[in-house]
Design a protein around this nucleic acid. Structure first.
Length: 523
RNA sequence: GGGGAUGUAGCUCAAUUGGUUAGAGCACCGGCCUGUCACGCCGGAGGUUGCGGGUUCGAGCCCCGUCAUCCUCGCCA
């Protein structure tokens, strides 16, 4: 008999003889005096040791049924189950009704790429798997189910990341006769209760509400990790005092010059480390990184010579820099400086241990822009989704300056991760139609794609709004995981394959014919 | 689609600057011990260094290509 055999033993449990106990075993004080032994199933030597070091992920996913035997993973799924139970109880106590919505739906423009399912009965027609139950839950509001929730599976055919899978789970919520503050206030009660249950942490409510424009300016990201400060500062005025060519050019290009100051970074980082940081943000489009070490009476670094004494003094003041700190400056577009500096911010905070990795910081980010400009398509796209209600005070800007219109939208951010997001929806068919047209849809297209929604809105739609919380991400957070695959029983690889089953796989020609489709040559 | 990392025994990892027969721990096989079972002792087997080219007297190590996994930019309402 060997490891991983499945056996049955009948016998008597008894204490071990004195002196025969084994303190290294949990069951070391007792033993089974066996009368009968059945081997239900033998097992070959497994491809990896389930109680040994963690094998590489390729192997784990290929033999996922063995991987899942590992106690650490079993714990994750206990957390996952408990979180679902807690959420269902809280939502039910608050008067919400769980309603299921279709998996086979209709493809809609905007948003992520859809997974499509060809129709056998209707040649050339396709279902789409839902990116979220968004429209169904709005229609449920029109139907009079004024508080809906669902632990819903969602599908998006986009490239994956450590915290992204092609199919994932959301706690999906919608309610009628509410404003943005009603939704966030209710949901943070649930959030606080799960935080207490799974981390022992008592959240102070209400959670901070932070303005989108404000956090992007201060942290370069709309989901900043606020476990630590490390704020970005605009230094364009100081840069103007320097002889540095790069800075002079950025003024011509209308670029921004922003920076941050890493406490202790000047002492900790070598020249080679700093080259590494430069390369790191180079991958994000930044063409350079100006670094200055803060010494007792001067700033040092390859570009320090371009900074006159006054500029050096001004920089120290701007960042409240101490000796041994490191000032990092990036000159580029708004988007590039934001991405580069927010990435640096996260990396430096981790490397310089500026926060307790076990800490949690929850906040709401609010007042997002309604639209984002898509340069490739030459049109506005919805920042959240096309059904979002503008802020009332910005409604008058819809015609004149759509880019300035802010949305009744809110994201829940935990430790720099987007844990959820939602909006108040357009319940007014006129505003909804206007938004469709601003997104570049003709009235005919809007009618063709969203006629059912516009129809519903004309038939007594209450004001409504909602939110979706990333269920997998919360499991990750509460299990201390950094990888979403570890909290999904049978996950996909970064390229969307299932190493265990071999999905996606080929199908029979007969299936193609039945579905009125065929392979396309891509050459 | 772009960038980066990794790929050596069943598993986890080693292998100066390119240099003899590619090593260790665990696992596996055989034996010993036989109330120590994540014990001990003795012995053994096991490698196309992901794959394909190239450079070289000589490649695990250098170069090119390719595949897989991971991270990341784009993308993800």
């Amino acid at each position: 008999m060997r490891n991983e055999y499945v056996i049955g033993v009948k016998g008597t449990v008894a204490p071990r003889l004195p002196g025969k106990e084994n303190p290294r075993l949990v069951t070391g004080a007792i033993e089974v005096r066996a009368r009968e032994l059945v081997v239900y199933n033998a097992s070959p030597t497994p491809p990896f040791e389930m109680h040994g070091p963690e094998p590489n992920e390729e192997l784990r996913l290929t033999y996922r049924y063995l991987d899942l035997r590992r106690p650490a993973l079993q714990q994750v799924f206990i957390v996952r189950h408990r979180l679902a139970q807690v959420m269902r109880r809280i939502m039910t106590d608050m008067g919400f009704l769980e309603v299921e919505t279709p998996i086979l739906g209709r493809s809609t423009p905007e948003g992520a790429r859809d997974f499509l399912v060809p129709s056998r009965v209707h040649a050339g027609h396709f279902y789409a798997l839902p990116q979220s139950p968004q429209l169904y839950k709005q229609l449920l509001m029109v139907s009079g189910f004024d508080r809906y929730f669902q632990i819903a599976r969602c599908f998006r055919d986009e490239d994956l990341r450590a915290n992204r899978q092609p199919e994932f789970t959301q706690l999906d919520v919608e309610m009628s006769f509410v404003d943005d503050n009603d939704v966030t206030s209710m949901m943070e009660i649930l959030v606080a209760e799960t935080a207490r249950e799974f981390t022992g942490l008592e959240l102070k409510l209400p959670l901070p509400r932070l303005d989108y424009h404000d956090v992007v300016e201060r942290f370069g990201s709309d989901r900043p990790d606020l476990r630590y400060e490390l704020e970005l500062k605009d230094v364009a005025d100081i840069a103007a005092q320097t002889e540095f060519k790069v800075f002079q050019q950025s003024k011509e290009f209308g670029h921004r010059i922003r920076g941050l100051c890493a406490p202790g970074g000047g002492t900790k980082y070598s020249r080679k480390d700093l080259d590494g940081l430069t390369e790191y943000i180079g991958g994000m489009g930044a063409r350079g990184l100006v670094w200055l070490k803060v010494e007792a009476d001067t700033l040092t670094g390859p570009t320090a010579k371009f900074f006159p004494v006054e500029a050096q003094q001004a920089l120290r003041q701007r960042f409240d820099a101490k000796v041994g700190d490191l000032i990092l400056i990036v000159a580029d577009t708004q988007a590039v400086t934001s991405l580069a500096l927010s990435s640096l911010r996260a990396r430096l905070a981790a490397e310089l241990e500026l926060y307790d990795p076990k800490a949690f910081h929850y906040s709401w980010i609010v007042r997002f822009p309604l639209f984002a400009w898509d340069g490739d398509e030459g049109r506005f796209v919805a920042e959240h989704h096309p059904f979002t209600m503008p802020l009332f005070e910005d409604l008058h800007l819809l015609d004149s300056e759509p880019a300035k219109v802010r949305a009744q939208a809110y994201d829940l951010v935990v430790n720099g991760e987007e844990a959820g997001g939602g909006t108040i929806r357009c319940h007014d068919p006129e505003i909804q139609s206007k938004i469709f047209s601003l997104l570049g849809l003709t009235p005919e297209q809007a009618q063709e794609k969203f006629g059912f929604l516009l129809g519903a809105l004309r038939n007594g739609a209450p004001p409504h709004g909602g939110i979706a919380l990333g269920f997998d991400r919360l499991v990750m957070l509460y299990s201390g995981l950094t990888n979403i695959r570890d909290c999904i029983a049978f996950p996909k690889t970064a390229k969307g394959t299932d190493l265990m089953t071999g999905a996606p796989g080929t199908v029979e020609p007969r299936q193609f014919r039945e579905l009125h489709i065929g392979p396309v040559s891509t050459t």
